[in-house]
Amino acid sequence: MSHISLKNAGVQLPIYDSHSLRLLRLPSFGRAKVGTQAVSHAGSTMIIHALSDVSLELADGDRVCLIGSNGAGKTTLLRLLAGIYAPTSGSIGVEGKVYAMLGNNMLLNNDATGYENIQLIANLYHWPKGKMADFIRDIEEFTELGEYLSLPVRIYSAGMQARLAFAMGTAHTPDILLVDEGIGAGDAHFQQQAQDRIHRFLGTARIIVLASHSVELCRKICTKAILLSKGREVFFGDIEEAFRLYSEPVN
């Protein structure tokens, strides 16, 4: 059983600058417009209200996409779910093994080969050693990278890196998969494969949270959606309803 529960969770990002050390007074962000809904002051530090008052309950089988314009708080919410950010208000509870794939997988070592990187991720995420051969075969089949897997990752194209990262994220099935635009880099064939894989992966009833600007991709993978605007949760529920609200002009 995996489960995610957010209760009025918010993330306020402080902007640290050299003023906090106060050795010298140097030009800073002091003149930025503050006191608006998005930015405020706490002492000398500026605070960005990246996410406020989000409440969610997700359980096994939920496939949710995050939609909203740039800066709406999609990545912040994913980082909150991944445990990268701690909530500054409200609370969060996450049950289950989380794999966060935010951006292209930065953990990859560019000078190491594809195979070495698989071993690296397996090591860092504590994949069971006994099943390594299965994982590797699975990744070989999915990525279709062939002999490229024996070459350093730095020579891979963006799409090839996305394939490898996605294959590794889903090889040792996590309970909760968080994806931020990661699939977008691949070609149409890869997108189709990724969808198939996610559907198969969901046969084991897990949670997926996906942030994407691709309406088509969201529709194919997800059933629910969270619509964010300026760090606030505008809507959480049926995906079609969310897209209808999103496409409405903002007044």
């Binding site: 706490a42 002492g43 605070i47 445990g83 909530p87 500054t88 208000s89 409200g90 509870g93 996450v94």
Partner: peptide, 15 residues
């Protein structure tokens, strides 16, 4: 910064 920190039930990330 003195923003109050909420309690987290997350299993091991912050605990």
């Amino acid at each position: 910064m003195n923003t109050p920190m909420a309690t987290v039930a997350m299993d091991d990330q912050f605990a």
